[in-house]
Design a protein around this nucleic acid. Structure first.
Length: 523
RNA sequence: GGCGCCAUCGUCUAUCGGUUAGGACGUAAGAUUUUCAUUCUUAAAAGCGGGGUUCGAUUCCCCGUGGCGCUACCA
């Protein structure tokens, strides 16, 4: 039973925030490509900031020098540019709270580490990794905390002059947060409500390591969010367990009055099986997990990206937005502006969401329908070129108008509509079996003559004339038209036949039909 | 193992104590069409289990079960 009254301090914070400018941040670690779950987190931050007329800050959390991957930061920026998620401030965007790269803020963190040391909220620890490992091996649930810290090598157990000697002598050390056991720590979460945990289960987290003169995530995060005046921390659920530690840190610094509001988002899960969506799943199951294609500089591995796989960014965004949030009605197709208006943290779900890429494909289809034909044509032109076909946009756009409703991806236009640009040289066997029978040859032959003699070729005029002519011959319309279609397309597929003849023009239409008459048998 | 979060159709979700439990994706059938698609219509499909609270629980509480996360000198 959670019977604890919310802290007064939290109430004040909530009230004060109403008048404060909303500031949120997305703070990735440049250890590789941006994961699709990170994109969703960034999106929610972006929607929230825009809705409140606030700022969105881009911060780079590179406090682990060992895991730095060159190119990752640029990749992340490019991905957001493609997705249409904009930042107001941060690395590459300017702003008054910089630097925004944590590795460039060493001196800032040192000040705050010292403050904690001096106030007795943190202490030096000299245990080597090997010693810690040994402890963990001998005791199954070993944790560096109130129950064990007095048996370790740190500034609480060692004589002061010895501690000073190591620290000033350039010896290796870390600084640990001293957690007082037995406290109720309240985390007020905008999505989950009040989460209360006992501080006794927390360990004395490493806040700073002398080896690279950098803080760990927890310290850097709190210091930066405070200094950058972040008002809302919207992040993945994997951070929930460390939220109490963060609250304690704010209190240790005396910043509890301006502590940001927390919102922990549900995780994105694999489409099948167990666990959260991971890097490997994507290409295994046939969909990307990264916004852009990623070339790993170390291994040389290539991971596919949504952009290269021909997804429209607005489809990816719309799909992602609905994974863990909904506007409360049946509306699913929304522009970024609509989502900005409708977004509401209190309408976010708490349970993890499976990543259903089939639905994403449907979104892509819907957004192709909504895009301008000329836009799609521009995207398709290079694909056409890759197939060896050079065509001006004026020739591509009308094809798009006829065919885009039939595809889920722009590149599928090639499979669906290659015959718009290239005359058939072969004829689909199945189509021939069905439609190239009996009098097919005669139908097409006479139809060619009829069309050839007709002064009008435009479909709107030609169609009724042809229909009338077929009727006068007492021929079956379907058999005539489908035989004709096969000669133009090469198979029994495609758009309305007179839309196609309009596109091809009289000469090309007759050329294709007559060529087929030469090649195909007269039965 | 410890701690935490979570739990409605196969999937994403609506419902803020009283509904024939709604929508979407996917699936199936049908309709339209001179072809193939598209499109449209329809159908099948859900409250994890057990206790409470209540006139009444999918909804509130507890327990169980299950899923997920965290448990580093990584973020």
């Amino acid at each position: 039973m959670r019977t604890f009254a919310p802290k007064i301090i939290n109430r004040q914070t909530v009230n004060r925030r109403i008048a404060m400018k909303v500031r949120v941040r997305f703070a990735p670690s440049p250890t590789g490509p941006l994961h699709i779950g990170g994109v969703r987190t960034a999106l929610y931050n972006y929607l929230f900031a825009r809705q409140h007329g606030g700022d969105m800050v881009f911060r780079i959390e590179d406090t682990d020098s060992n895991r730095f991957v060159p190119g990752a930061e640029e990749y992340i920026r490019e991905a957001f540019a493609w997705l249409g998620i904009g930042f107001d401030e941060g690395v590459g965007f300017g702003g008054e709270y910089g630097p925004y790269r944590q590795s460039e803020r060493r001196e800032i963190y040192k000040v705050y580490v010292r403050q904690l040391l001096e106030s007795g909220r943190a202490y030096y620890a000299f245990d080597t990794p090997a010693e810690l490992e040994a402890k963990r091996a001998e005791r199954p649930n070993f944790q560096y905390d109130a129950t064990t810290r007095m048996e370790m090598r740190n500034s609480l157990t060692l004589p002061k002059d010895e501690v000073d000697a190591i620290v000033s002598g350039g010896g290796q050390y870390v600084v640990r947060f001293l957690i007082e056991p037995g406290q109720e720590v309240h985390v007020h979460d905008l999505i989950r409500g009040e989460v209360v945990i006992n501080s006794s289960i927390l360990d004395d987290k490493v806040l700073y390591k002398s080896a690279d003169e950098l803080p760990t995530y927890h310290l850097a995060n709190i210091v930066d969010d405070h200094l950058m005046q972040i008002t809302h921390v919207i992040r993945g659920e994997e951070w929930l367990p460390s939220a109490p530690l963060h609250v304690l840190l704010y209190e240790a610094f005396g910043w509890q009055d301006t502590m940001p509001q927390f919102a922990h988002l549900p995780l994105l899960l694999k489409p099948e099986g167990n666990g959260k969506l991971s890097k490997r799943d994507g290409d295994r199951l046939g969909f990307p997990v990264f916004p852009l294609e990623w070339h790993d500089p170390k291994t040389g591995d290539v991971s596919s990206g949504y952009r290269e796989k021909d997804y429209l960014p607005e489809a990816v965004i719309n799909f992602l937005a609905l994974l863990g949030w909904n506007p409360g009605n049946d509306q699913e197709l929304m522009t970024m502006d609509e989502m900005t208006r409708l977004f509401d943290l209190s309408r976010c779900s708490k349970a993890g969401a499976r990543f259903d890429y089939k639905k994403l494909i449907w979104f892509n289809h819907e957004y192709i329908l909504r895009r301008d034909d000329a836009d799609i044509a521009r995207a398709f032109q290079p694909m056409l070129r890759a197939q060896g076909v050079e065509a001006p946009l004026e020739r591509i756009t009308p094809m798009v108008a006829l065919m885009k409703g039939r595809v889920n991806f722009v590149h599928e236009l090639w499979e669906q509509a290659a015959y718009f640009f290239v005359a058939p040289t072969e004829y689909d066997e199945k189509s021939l079996r069905k439609w190239w029978r009996e009098d097919a040859w005669t139908y097409v032959s006479e139809l060619c003559d009829f069309i050839g003699e007709s002064p009008e070729f435009e479909g709107a005029v030609l169609e009724p004339k042809v229909m009338e002519w077929i009727a006068s011959k007492e021929w079956p319309v379907g058999k005539v038209m489908n035989a004709f279609r096969v000669t133009l397309v090469g198979a029994a597929v495609g758009p309305h036949i007179f839309a196609l003849t309009d596109y091809l023009g009289k000469d090309e239409t007759l050329r294709r039909a007559r060529r087929a008459l030469e090649v195909l048998p007269k039965l």
